[in-house]
Nucleic acid binder design. Structure first.
Lengths: 233, 233
DNA sequence: TTTTCTATTGGGGGTTTCCCGTATTTAGGC
DNA sequence: GCCTAAATACGGGAAACCCCCAATAGAAAA
């Protein structure tokens, strides 16, 4: 998975990290982080209030590949309290590292899903006891969810994000053919249906795979369905 | 903020409508409604606190097809204040009807998206002035979003939602292999990964296709993703 | 206990897909 | 007007997939 550091872009740095800082202040959090994912393209873009040392370590060690907060959030609808991750094997790795860099022990990650398969993750952390965290958690979780929706809504509609997390589009013919494939038709069938050569059908399928960054047609069908380009047949 | 454990209550119908009533009471709302959609399967399941007359009218007139709250929410991440829909052409139709049945004029619809393309909509309404509504809105929107996530999470993991459609089950091996196919692996690759023969992989794929009533593997992958047996790779 | 289901492996052979080319048409940029 | 990129279209040959068959073993259900 490739990481796009949005903070290097000129205008956005101040806007979003400042917003994250405001969340911290308002809800007594030590740190906040936002990550926007495009599972199809396999890209992640984020803003954090963590120090640069941790950011560098996180990237250089490829911790994003095993980060349990990200894996958990990909399947979950509800907010994920980090205490629920403690039994995960990868948890030890990432969180011990984090602790060494002086990062807080208690945290929560809130997933937000958009209509194009995009996922936004807002995480907030605080160094405190479990009891203290529980009290704080129930008090601020509602507002944090609003904030998560708000920041994700802003990020995905901004220019820098759409260019960073490119959302593929298929041509009319490509989508049409992929739709027939999802309906269980063979290339020969589709050629007959559309009155073109099955060779041509294959070409459109190939370009569809390329646009979706898919290695095989089944993978392309899965991704196209996941981001709403076609419907399961 | 307290969360009612829905699983302790016996019957689903009363369970969810009772939960909606509690939301109304807590936040001074007149009515609340939840709709769970599976756009890929084209199914909608809902619970409302509206009267039966309006429910019957809504269904018999097919208002669900033109309901602007549903259309808006399909493309939106953020909550949709019904005042933003007033310029929609279909708005007039649905909301004039609603008004005739004595339904409130102010409302909000909160969309929640799950990992399988499923969408949950929580709506809350109140009959009051615009100023009153604005004040109430900003005060309760955070908690309403939490409630929306909570109820949708419960509904999609409940039996009645999944069993609404015929739901084939795959064996562990079948799902495992289909997941690898969705990730773009060939049969030979999967055989190497799982340390089994590629012939065995093919057998499992065949039975997967049969169980899913799919003619081809791409179709099987699409259906498996649509009903949540695997995730897009 | 018998039966059924799942998981496993293999052969033979037809079908389908996929990668390599080429070619025409169309839309958009300089 | 020219050029480039994308969309559309077609074919040969190699690789992968899929369907028929048979067979073994363990686990679960009847």
């Amino acid at each position: 998975m490739e990481i796009v550091d949005l903070s290097t872009l000129p205008d956005s740095e101040t806007r979003y990290t400042e917003f994250l800082r405001q969340i911290c202040e308002k809800h007594d959090m030590d740190h906040a982080a936002y990550a926007g994912m495009n599972p199809t393209a396999g890209t992640v873009a984020g803003y954090v209030t963590y120090g640069d040392e941790w950011k560098d370590h996180y990237q250089s060690q490829g911790l994003i590949m095993i980060d349990p907060t990200i894996h958990m959030s990909r399947r979950s609808i509800a907010p994920v309290d980090w205490s629920r991750l403690e039994r995960s094997p990868d948890f030890q790795r990432v969180f011990r590292d984090a602790h060494d860099f002086g990062l807080p022990s208690q945290g929560v990650t809130i997933p937000v899903r958009g209509p194009y398969g995009d996922i936004g993750l807002l995480s907030a952390t605080r160094d405190c006891s479990k009891e203290e965290w529980r009290k704080l958690y129930t008090h601020v979780i509602g507002d944090l969810q609003s904030m998560a929706v708000h920041i994700h809504d802003n990020v995905v509609t901004s220019d820098e994000f759409t260019s960073a997390l490119y959302h593929p589009t298929l041509s009319t013919r490509e989508a049409e053919i992929l739709q027939w494939v999802a309906a269980g038709k063979s290339q020969q069938d589709i050629g007959d249906i559309l009155s073109i050569s099955h060779r041509t059908v294959e070409v459109h399928l190939r370009s569809s795979r390329e646009k979706l960054s898919a290695l095989t047609t089944p993978q392309a069908v899965g991704r196209a369905i996941a981001i709403g380009l076609i419907t399961p047949g």
